[in-house]
Design a protein around this nucleic acid. Sequence first.
RNA 1: GUCCCUAUCGUCUAGAGGCCUAGGACAACACCCUUUCACGGUGUGAACCGGGGUUCGAAUCCCCGUGGGGACGCCA
Length: 466
Amino acid sequence: MNPSPVKTRFAPSPTGYLHIGGARTALFAWAYARRHGGKFVLRIEDTDIERSTPEAVQAILDGMQWLGLAHDEGPFYQMQRMYRYKEVIGQMLAAGTAYHCYMSKEQLDALRAAQEAKKEKPRYDGTWRPEPGKTLPTPPSGVQPVVRFRNPTDGVVAWDDQVKGRIEIANAELDDFIIARADGTPTYNFCVVVDDWDMGITHVIRGDDHVNNTPRQINLLQALGAPVPRYGHLSMILGDDGTKLSKRHGAVSVMQYDADGYLPEAVLNYLARLGWSHGDDEIFTMAQFVEWFDLDHITSSAAQFNTEKLNWLNAHYIKLADDARLGQEIRRRLVREGVTETAAPDPAEIAALYKDRVQNLNELADSAHAFYVAPHPSDDLVAQHLTDAAKAALADLRRRLAEADFSPAALAQTLKATLAATGLKMPQVAIPLRVVLLGQPQSPAIDRVLAALGRARVLDRLDRLL
RNA sequence: GUCCCUAUCGUCUAGAGGCCUAGGACAACACCCUUUCACGGUGUGAACCGGGGUUCGAAUCCCCGUGGGGACGCCA
């Protein structure tokens, strides 16, 4: 009476980067295992040698790492398990649950075309399926056969889908699908079954597009005498425009979100909330997510990705983030742009100045840029803001700043002194000053900006434009 | 064509027959805060796909439409 411990898996095929839909599937499978104190397996389904690449494997590993979805077992590679698949195929052939089929691709294509012309569902017609009392055709010489699974012909396959509820499919809808190609290599549905069995997977949490594979896999499992795991099918994620996610939507790779300045915790929180809910909770930590996660509160219909909401979450997590960490992110991005002199001011200090005002790390770095590289305000800006009155005020301020104490509090007093001397209002001085100092009319509180910049930079920039 | 899934504000969703004059969040709009721009705060507008049942009572259960999605490979 050993209750079988929960074991889930994420099984991507390495034919591209880890996209946002795959990331959510991984997140849910991971969370389910964590929630139940079980294991999370990473399996790379690389049997499509034409399209699988080592770069894609690396991209998936990188994406998982960035998100912090650590696996307990694996990564397993299907290409390294060929011996095992061939062994099981041999056993099935011997047991009569699978058989050789000599129908050529051309014949199959013709069969399908004829069925489609008659408006029928295209399916294999069972020519080479052995039956008691049936005489099989003579195998043509020189043709390498494929191996087909002998699928039951009557009854239904049913399972209680953990997210969609009970699903039943008539066996009459299924045909004898190929489990090994003419060259002997096993196919997808077969490898999945052997792997899920061998790896002791108890809960298969995967995309909606696999619903149709499930009855075939259950039949196979049963033919093998293997336990049938529980299945839960997650509906797909649509793009921002409501259409299917594709490369044309831009930032579909998880790592693209890193490049675009998103924090992993924001992406994770967003993804968790996309298709799953816990009452009215919108913002939660991964620890809370793991504690709350269940399959009962997953939405069964497709969800549209909403960048606006992700942006909001990202802004929220940036406000929460540690200044030193944000400083690192600023430095990393500035260096990428060729700004190497980031020793002073301390990027963490600039982060503190701007973290409440930006939606992503790239905006943060863009804001910080002018603190390290003197800006070149456009002629328009200069003409608009650096009026004669403003210049006179800035000249007055410059004289005072040359001697002033550079603490924010003292700077505020200095600014006020200039206002008193010139009779101008704060914005009339502060805005031109921002243009001179940072190249744009908006910024955080001007006294804090002055303090962060430091006397040398401030005076230098004033001198350039006065 | 056949089979399967699906349907609440623009979007993500709450909702397990009465708690629903349908709640929250993003976005939008308005106001407040303010040394600019943001942030933040407060508030407003905004939805149960259609038609039949079942029931004293349906957003919730059933059926039929319709819309959307998926599958039907010697791809995964």
